[in-house]
């Protein structure tokens, strides 16, 4: 049986490493997706993840509503990602563009995709604007991020997530179509 998050948080606050590991397992994919969705390279994303988890360690005694942990993690990761992205951008003096200098999928990512349609779709995902990219990344994380956490991280009401998701997926399809990947290709 899956243990409720609230019990895991109580046990972790009490010093239980196994409970902590379970909290990590349930959220590591989401935290990673937020950092990568913000356009950070893998090394910077790894730093942001570590900081986010260290912050939860500091904060876990103060959590009153355990279910809020997911949203708290997503929000901290998002804020930290933006700060790191802004700083990295400033340091490389690349302020002329809204896009991060290192966000294009590297060859090591693409080489893992054997299907041409997948490769193109993954590249198109990176071309979306930050908000859509993060939303779709969070939804595609394993396990998928809860809507409440997405709402908090992206500062949007939970009720808007469905329509936004629809719009972002439509934009993704459009980009893919420009590169010759049709809806029929993607549905097969």
């Amino acid at each position: 049986m899956t243990e409720p998050l609230s019990e895991l948080v109580v046990r972790a606050a009490d010093g239980d490493q196994m409970a902590w590991n379970e909290i990590v397992d349930r959220h590591a994919g989401m935290v990673w997706s937020v950092a990568r969705g913000a356009g950070l390279d893998r090394a910077s994303a790894a730093d942001v993840c570590q900081t986010t988890w260290l912050r939860l360690v500091e904060h876990i005694d103060e959590i009153r509503e355990a279910e809020a942990v997911s949203g708290w993690l997503a929000t901290v990761a998002r804020r930290e990602s933006w700060r790191v992205a802004r700083r990295r951008n400033r340091l490389v003096l690349d302020e002329t563009t809204e896009r991060m200098p290192d966000e294009d999928p590297g060859p090591d990512e693409l080489v893992r995709l054997t299907d041409r349609r997948d490769r193109i779709l993954w590249e198109c995902l990176d071309e979306l604007r930050d908000r859509c990219r993060t939303l779709l990344r969070m939804l595609a994380s394993d396990p998928p991020a809860p809507y409440t956490a997405i709402g908090e991280a992206l500062e949007m009401p939970v009720g808007s997530i469905g329509p936004t998701r629809q719009r972002c997926l439509a934009q993704l399809r459009e980009l893919a179509e420009k590169r010759g990947i049709t809806t029929a290709d993607l549905d097969s």
């Binding site: 935290v31 990568r36 998928p144």
Partner: peptide, 19 residues
Amino acid sequence: LRRISGSADPVPPEVTALA
């Protein structure tokens, strides 16, 4: 997207270990 994300950009094991 879930499938692609899982193969192209999974959470690196060291990131989970550090967490």
